[in-house]
Design a protein around this nucleic acid. Structure first.
Lengths: 346, 346
DNA sequence: CCGGGAAATATAAACGTTTATATTTTTTCC
DNA sequence: GGAAAAAATATAAACGTTTATATTTCCCGG
C-alpha cells in the first residue's frame, strides 16, 4: 500500500539498488535484458522516483522560480494580470520535463532582489525567470555570478549578455510615431511605465529618435511615466488634454493603460477618431473590444511565455546565452482609428 | 564557503546533531542556554535548513499545489487572467510560513483530475487549491479519500463538506434580477459559464428563482452558456439582440464577458443605458473604465485570494472544514446605467 | 581449461535532516 | 552523601536516491 521505492523493486527482482537505479535511468552499464525486467516491474508497481531523494542526493531541485511582481493588494486595479497566461505558458512549455514552476511573489524591486538572493543562497531552484527588468539590474549580476541559469522577460544593459525574451518595444514605438506623423499628427504623447523599468527607457529613446527623424520636436510634457493601470491611463489623458496645446495622439504602453485612456476620452470630452488617437501594445486582444476598437500592436501573451519556457530549459541545459535571446515583433492590427487625420471628422 | 549544515554547527558548538536539530526547532528538551548558543552560531554562519533533507525525513513538501486551468494558447483571448492576482494573493498569504505555491497548469477538467491524482500519489504537495469546481467534482472525492488538505475556489455538492471560498453568486444574481425587474425590465438575459461549472448551476438556479419570485416567466432562450471570453460575450449579445423579442438587460458572468458584451452593443446598434443594461461581476475594477461605465458587483480579486491562502494554511493545520467555508458578497457599485428604464431615454 | 580483461552487478557511503533509544549529567530528596 | 528520578545530551538509524568502489560473472584467447 505504501508508495513503492527502489527497494521494493529490488525485493521484487533480486537486484541491488545500484542496478535498479541505473536501469531506471537507462544507464549503458546495465544489460538491456535486466533493464527490461526492471522497467516491467516498475510499471507494474506504479513506481515513480521520489523527488526528495533525488533532490537530496543530486542537489537538483526540479524547480523553476518565477519571480513575479505582484501588485499591491490595496490597489484594486487591473495591473499585472498578464502574469497568469505567462505562468501557464511557461508551465506548459516545461511540461513533461519534470520541472515545475514555483511562484516567488514580490511586492517591489527590492523584494525581488531579496528573492533572487535567497534562491541562489538556498538553491531553491535550478533556473529563474525574471521580469520587470531594469537597465542595470542587480538581480542579473547576482545570478550571473552564482552561475545560475535564468531568462529575463525584458532586456537589460548587462554584460556579459544573458538570455532574454522581449517584445520589440523600440520597433513598435518607432513605427507608431512614423505612422502617426505621416497622418499629420504633430503632438504625440507617450504614456510610459515607470522610468526605472528597462523598457521605459527603450520606448522613450525610440520615441525621441523617431520624432527627430520625422522632424518633430520633443516636448517633455507629452511624455509621462507611471504605473500601468487603467486609473493611471485615464488620469494621464485628462491631464494632458487640459493643456493649452493638447496632444492629438496618445501612445499607450499596454492595454490596461489604453482602457483607462479611452475612458479618459469621454471624461475629457474627447472623441476617439476625431480628436485623438490611442495606440496600444496588446497582449490579450482587449483592443478589439474597446469602444471604439483601437489599432494595436498585438503580441499574444502565450508567445513570449512559450519562449521563456523554451529558453530557461535550454539555459539549464547549458546552451550559450547568445542563442537564447528573442525579440518578438508584435503584429500591427489596424482598426477604426487608423488613417484618421488629427482634428478631422469621422 | 559551502552552505552550512547542521554538522557545521555541531563542529562549531561541540554538540550533537540531535541537540542542534532540536535547539533549532525550539524543542523544550534542550536547555535554553544551549539553544541560545546554537541560535547564535546558526545566525553567524547564515544557516538555514536544507529543505530537501527535511522533506526526505518528514515527508512534508512545503508546497501548495495550485491547479490552474490555463486557457488554450490558441485562443488569444482574455480568459482566466484573474489567476495572476489569485496566485499572488495566495503566495502573499502564505508568505513567511515556509510554504511555496507551485503551479500545476492544466488544459481542461480531465487534466486537472490527472494532476490531482498525481499530486496525491506522488505526494507533490501538502495542500491543494482547486478552482473551476463542478457540482459533483471527482477531484474533491480523490482529495478527501487521500486525506490531503485542500480548498476550492467555488462550491461543490460534495459530502462531507470541504473548505471553500466563493463569491456569493446566488446573491449577486438574485439582487440583480430583483433590481432590474423593479426598474421595469421583463426580458433579462443571463450569460453564464459552461454548464458543467458549479457556479453556472448556482447562477442559473438563482436566476430562475428570482424571476419566478417577481412574477416573470423564464425564457430558456435568454439563458446562454459558454466560455467567458470577450468574444463569447459579444457573440451572445449580437445573437440575442437579433431575436424578435430581444432582452432589455444582460447579466454577465464576469468582466471579460461584459467587455465583449458592451462591444456587441455597438455592433448590434444598441445603446447602453437606453436599449439595455449590462451588469457584471467584477474582479479587476474594469467596469469603471468601460464606455460607458457599467454597474457592477465588485469583489476585488485579492480578497478571495487572501481567504484561499488563509484556508489552506488552516486546513493543513488540521482545522475542521466547517470553519473554513467563506462566501463573499461583492459590493454593488451603481454607475451610469443604474435606475434606467428599459427603452427610456438618457 | 586456465588466466586475464571486460562487462555486469553488488556493496556501501553519502546527501541533510529528524527522532527513537541510549547514555550521561544534573537535580532532588531522604 | 548517595540513590533515584529527571533533565539534558549523544548515538545511531532512517527517509530514497545516486555513485564511487568493490566484487562477481562472463567471454575470449592461448
Amino acid at each position: 500500500m505504501a508508495r513503492p521505492t527502489i527497494r521494493t523493486i529490488c525485493a521484487e527482482t533480486g537486484l541491488s539498488t545500484a542496478t535498479v537505479s541505473k536501469a531506471l535511468r537507462q544507464s549503458p552499464q546495465v544489460r538491456p535484458e535486466t533493464r527490461k525486467r526492471v522497467e516491467e516491474v516498475a510499471r507494474r508497481l506504479g513506481y515513480s522516483a521520489n523527488l526528495d531523494g533525488v533532490r537530496l542526493r543530486t542537489g537538483k531541485t526540479f524547480q523553476i522560480a518565477a519571480v513575479m511582481a505582484a501588485p499591491e493588494p490595496g490597489s484594486d486595479e487591473w495591473e499585472g494580470v498578464e502574469y497568469a497566461p505567462i505562468l501557464s505558458g511557461i508551465s506548459r512549455a516545461v511540461e513533461g520535463t519534470g520541472y515545475r514552476v514555483a511562484i516567488h511573489a514580490v511586492r517591489d524591486f527590492a523584494e525581488s532582489v531579496d528573492a533572487v538572493q535567497r534562491i541562489v543562497r538556498e538553491r531553491l531552484a535550478d533556473g529563474v525567470i525574471l521580469s520587470q527588468t531594469r537597465v542595470t539590474d542587480e538581480r542579473v549580476a547576482i545570478l550571473q555570478e552564482a552561475g545560475m541559469p535564468f531568462v529575463t522577460y525584458g532586456t537589460t544593459g548587462a554584460h556579459p549578455a544573458h538570455p532574454f525574451v522581449d517584445a520589440d518595444n523600440a520597433g513598435v514605438v518607432r513605427q507608431t510615431v512614423l505612422r502617426l506623423a505621416a497622418a499629420g499628427h504633430r503632438r504625440i504623447a507617450l504614456i510610459n511605465p515607470p522610468h526605472e523599468q528597462s523598457y521605459a527607457r527603450t520606448r522613450s529613446e525610440s520615441y525621441r529618435r523617431a520624432l527627430s527623424d520625422v522632424g518633430l520636436s520633443h516636448d517633455p510634457a507629452l511624455e509621462v511615466a507611471g504605473r500601468l493601470t487603467p486609473e493611471a491611463g485615464r488620469a494621464a489623458v485628462m491631464r494632458l488634454a487640459a493643456r493649452p496645446e493638447p496632444p492629438t495622439a496618445y501612445v499607450c504602453a499596454n492595454e490596461a493603460v489604453a482602457l483607462g485612456a479611452l475612458s479618459g476620452f469621454a471624461a475629457a470630452g474627447l472623441v476617439h477618431g476625431r480628436d485623438a488617437i490611442i495606440n496600444a501594445t496588446d497582449d490579450l486582444n482587449i483592443s478589439a473590444y474597446l469602444n471604439p476598437p483601437i489599432s494595436t500592436y498585438f503580441l499574444p501573451i502565450h508567445t513570449p511565455a512559450a519562449w521563456l519556457g523554451d529558453h530557461i530549459l535550454r539555459a539549464m541545459a547549458g546552451e550559450p546565452p547568445e542563442d537564447l535571446q528573442t525579440l518578438l515583433m508584435p503584429a500591427f492590427i489596424a482598426r477604426s482609428d487608423d488613417r484618421l487625420q488629427p482634428g478631422g471628422e469621422r
